[in-house]
Amino acid sequence: MHVAYVVKRYPRYSETFIVNEILAHEAAGMRVRIYALLPPQDSHFQDIISQVKAPVCYLSAKAERATPFWELQKRAAAIYPSSWQVLSQHQDASAREITQALELALHIHKHQIDHLHAHFATTSTTVTNIAAQICQIPFSFTAHAKDIFHQDNDYNLVKKKFSSAQFAVTVSDYNVDYLINELEIEPSKLVRIYNGLDLNQFPFSPYNNRPPHIIAVGRLVEKKGFSDLIHACALLKQRGTIFHCDIIGEGDQKRQLADLIQNYDLGSCVQLIGPLPQAQVKKRICESAMFVAPCVIGTDNNQDGLPTVLVESMALGTPCISTDVTGIPEVIEHNKTGLMCEQHSPEELAAAISQLLSSPEQAEKYAQNARMQIEQRFNIHSNTEILRKQFLKFQ
């Protein structure tokens, strides 16, 4: 089977789950091609990208002038006469999306691609949907978080994408319930598959004599809740707790968070590190007393589905603290595989951090239990096998 993955940008620092998925498919012998709608923007990339064998093609990022655009349509119609009719059904698509879908259709014909799979129910799925209809091949996509939760989404268009696809993957039971109950998606269209890890790349690190270091990783945006973590650190400092907190990542809230650190006079114990390569992130996680993911539901309803870095930290053997939002309770069972706090509660975060700092034996037990859960439910090879079986259903 020859499968094309369609993504908005490739590679992308924050989307290691897509790279993990493609690598697992390749390890199982599946042929993969990658199509990106836009070039990368990040200054750092994850090390594992170099392991991907799939060729990468960047579709035209700008709609062509009228004459080349017309010629592209005629080339596609010469192979797929129904393309005119298909395009007439997608009047809500942009000129760029139409151009990229036509280009993708020509690649499907040239490389004899059997199935299209997109990530995120956004422009990548729009392009995939149109190309699949032109070529009359099956397509699917994975819905994650912002693409289904954000208040600015065109939900009628989102629902149309679910209806058109042969099936759609989403990354937590929470997401499944939301899609069925809030967006009225047909349950038979949905498959829950957790974002998995290659556990050989995330060996368990014993919890021995770790310094009182707190680590958090993610884009510096509202839904990550880092302002609550900084507030919690201010409470810990007031109580005389000895600790150091590093927040790794880049994002729109960098200035706001830096100001908060300064206002609380936390410069000596809280640092914004910026983005780092994955190898360095993993090293820092393994050297820390705990990983904290203080996720919240944003004012725009944006929220995480289930943070991959949280799963990675649990796999590596670092005790985790997170919040009771979205799919997180599906991976952290309070007082068994980690500690759970209410969102927007710096007081609870501070108490949980103090609990782990003062009870290393308990922290170690959480880490061991968490690793067992990750092995059982988040193995990338088992999870992508489920996805490949879904692909095969429609061949």
Rank of each mutant, 00 (worst) to 15 (best):
351 A>Q: 13
338 G>C: 08
309 V>H: 09
305 G>Q: 03
350 A>K: 11
279 A>Q: 15
313 S>A: 15
346 P>R: 04
355 Q>M: 13
286 C>A: 14
334 H>Y: 06
304 D>P: 01
359 S>R: 15
313 S>I: 04
286 C>R: 14
280 Q>N: 12
363 A>V: 10
337 T>D: 13
346 P>M: 04
292 V>L: 05
280 Q>E: 13
288 S>L: 05
305 G>R: 00
352 A>F: 08
346 P>L: 05
359 S>L: 13
356 L>F: 05
342 E>H: 11
356 L>A: 06
378 F>E: 01
377 R>T: 14
345 S>L: 03
306 L>Q: 10
336 K>G: 08
369 N>Y: 15
328 I>P: 00
293 A>K: 00
326 T>Q: 03
296 V>S: 02
372 M>Q: 15
330 E>S: 02
372 M>D: 14
336 K>M: 15
369 N>I: 11
363 A>R: 06
374 I>W: 02
314 M>G: 07
309 V>N: 08
378 F>C: 04
359 S>N: 15
367 A>K: 04
303 Q>M: 09
326 T>G: 01
303 Q>A: 12
355 Q>R: 14
372 M>E: 13
358 S>R: 15
338 G>T: 11
285 I>G: 06
323 T>V: 10
375 E>M: 11
282 K>A: 10
342 E>I: 06
322 S>R: 04
380 I>W: 10
373 Q>R: 15
358 S>E: 15
291 F>M: 05
335 N>C: 12
293 A>P: 00
354 S>D: 15
323 T>R: 02
346 P>F: 07
331 V>C: 08
299 T>A: 14
325 V>S: 00
295 C>G: 02
336 K>F: 14
293 A>N: 03
347 E>A: 15
314 M>D: 12
280 Q>V: 10
374 I>R: 01
333 E>Q: 14
301 N>V: 03
364 E>Q: 11
345 S>N: 14
346 P>Y: 00
319 P>D: 13
326 T>L: 01
374 I>G: 12
314 M>N: 05
299 T>L: 15
336 K>N: 13
338 G>S: 09
378 F>V: 00
322 S>A: 14
363 A>C: 07
282 K>M: 03
313 S>R: 05
319 P>F: 06
372 M>R: 14
358 S>I: 07
315 A>L: 04
291 F>G: 04
363 A>N: 01
362 Q>F: 09
311 V>D: 13
331 V>Q: 06
281 V>E: 02
335 N>K: 12
298 G>Y: 09
331 V>E: 01
343 Q>S: 02
320 C>N: 10
290 M>W: 03
327 G>S: 08
297 I>L: 07
336 K>C: 15
356 L>I: 12
289 A>Y: 04
366 Y>D: 07
292 V>W: 02
316 L>V: 11
281 V>C: 01
341 C>T: 08
369 N>G: 07
338 G>N: 06
360 P>W: 01
333 E>R: 10
307 P>M: 05
357 L>I: 12
286 C>I: 12
296 V>I: 14
312 E>H: 02
302 N>K: 01
